[in-house]
Every structure is written in structure tokens, then in C-alpha cells.
Design a protein around this nucleic acid. Sequence first.
DNA 1: TAGATTATCTGCATGACGCAGTCATCCTAT
DNA 2: ATAGGATGACTGCGTCATGCAGATAATCTA
Lengths: 152, 152
Amino acid sequence: MTHSTRLTELEIASRHYMASYVLFNQAVADHVGMHPTDVQCLNLITAEPEPVTTGAIAEMTGLTSGSATRLVDRLVKAGYVERVRDTDDRRKVLVRVVPEALAGYGAMWARLGAGWRELLEENTPEEKQVLLRHMRRTVELSRRQIEQLREA
Amino acid sequence: MTHSTRLTELEIASRHYMASYVLFNQAVADHVGMHPTDVQCLNLITAEPEPVTTGAIAEMTGLTSGSATRLVDRLVKAGYVERVRDTDDRRKVLVRVVPEALAGYGAMWARLGAGWRELLEENTPEEKQVLLRHMRRTVELSRRQIEQLREA
DNA sequence: TAGATTATCTGCATGACGCAGTCATCCTAT
DNA sequence: ATAGGATGACTGCGTCATGCAGATAATCTA
């Protein structure tokens, strides 16, 4: 990934791949009239089995706690989530997705997701394993490198 | 990718995968004191064999032409690129990467890129083909869906 | 050669974000 | 039991990236 040396096909593809996600995320956000960060956040918390705290959202999105609060404000205002105080630790605020509110959002994903799912289904189970492994490894590597960057 | 149905492992991994890229990009940006968009842009234009126009940058990043101008302003100010008027069409501005300016930037990537490259090298040639194909397909699908979203 | 089109650049307004401080709640050590 | 500290979430304020609309210069076309 130095710039003096030639980049491999795969490295170049990676860049465009990542860039395309940013564009896609932006397009989705524009379409539903939200900020890309908000879409990103919704995607992350709907992937979680349980409601998450504001702090967890801050960590997942890389925002400060203050900005995460504002992010949740926007999602609440838009009706996508609601705040629920944690009964165990009353300092915490659980952000719960409102399933009904995701109807329109879900309808969009039903259209888009179909194409996406097809794309995945074009792969054999073995190939899917390769992709899954690569994604997980990447997430892990990314996490380590972020730590490294913050230290230095 | 609807939210009423269960998400597959691969779909969940995809989301975290994409999210991790955003975080990583942000961390890199913080590290070099730039905006994420600027890093994104540098990654894209250094992946191109030839200097690109401001308009091309606008398209690649999804920004308006005005914002792209400002983006280039920042990169110029930071010394990463320089503006060169296109001699064929003097309306156009070619944005050329300044190789020397990427020394520090490149040094960082040399460290980070090593881990990244290793990750890719952990795959057999066949597996790399699977990844490459998937990335290209995704970019293509993404492009089509963005178009679809803009129409609707 | 005039008018339309294209590529880039600017003035202005909006809004997301970080920072630093505040408040409420929980934990811990004496 | 209680004081001091830690933790989680929230606010005031300033900064800055971005979109929008219009300006300017260069090119194309009838």
C-alpha cells in the first residue's frame, strides 16, 4: 500500500470496494433523508440482538459521547429508535430500535437487499466461507491497527 | 437485509466489515491530521495511473463540484497534490499527486499496509480470486443500486 | 460569431462534530 | 455508612466540511 511500489489488482480493488461502500451509504442516507452516520448506526444496532447503550454506539461509530448523544437524538426524532433507561444501572440509556418505524426503511432494504443477497448467493458455500473469514480477519486487523495508530 | 427476518452470519459480518473500514479511515485521518474524506480521496487518486480532474474527484467521492474544489484546496494546502491546468482542455484542472509529499504518508502505509498485505497473502491464489471477484461484483452492484436510489 | 454547454471556483447558510464542562448514578475504601 | 472517585449521558459553544446557487472562463455548435 506504499505509493512508490506497484499496487496489486487486489489492493486496487479493495480501495474501490471500500469507496463504493461510502458512496452507497451516502446514497441510502440521501434517499431516506438521513445523515450517513445515522444510517451506519442503524445498520449496526439492527445487527445487534439486544438494545445497545449510547456509549456502545459511540464506540461502534467512533464518535465522542456527546456526538453519540446527538446522533441518538436524531434517530429518536426520526422515530427509528427510543430511549429506555437501564433498570440495572440507571446511568445507562438503552437505545431500542422501533420495529414498526423500520417499515419504510425495511422496504427499501427489501429491494436493495435482494440484489445484495443474490450477490452473496452466487458463491458456493466454500466461497462464502472464504469471504466470511476474510471479513472477520479484516475487522480484527482493522481493530488492531486503529489501536496502533492511536498509540503512535 | 430486512429487519424482520434473521440476518445471516455473512450479512452481519458485512456490516461490521464495512463499519470497521469507516473507523479505520477515521483513525488514519486523525493520525495524519486530515479529514476522512481527504484520506479517501488520496487513496483513490493514488490508485489511479494518471492525474485526475477535479470533476472526476467529485464523482469518485460523491461530492458536489464546489465541495470537490474545496477538497482539492485542502490537499494542495497540505502539500499532497498540485493543480495542473489541462493543456488540451484549459477548463479542466488536473490534480497531480506530489510523490515526495507522500513520504510520511507512505511510511505510515508501509507499516499498516504490511499487515494488510499479509492478510491477503494468507489466502491461496484461488481464494484471492474469490475475493477479487466479490469486490468487483460489489462495486458494480453498488453502482447500479446508487443509480436506482437516485431515480426513485 | 453568438449562444449553449462544460469545468471549476466562490459566497453563504446549514449542521455534524469535538471539546470541555455538568449532572446523575454507581462503586470502593476506609 | 459515607466520602471520594469513577462512569455514563447530556449540553454550550466554536469549528469546519458540505450543499446550493450563482459567477467566470473555456470549449463546442449551429
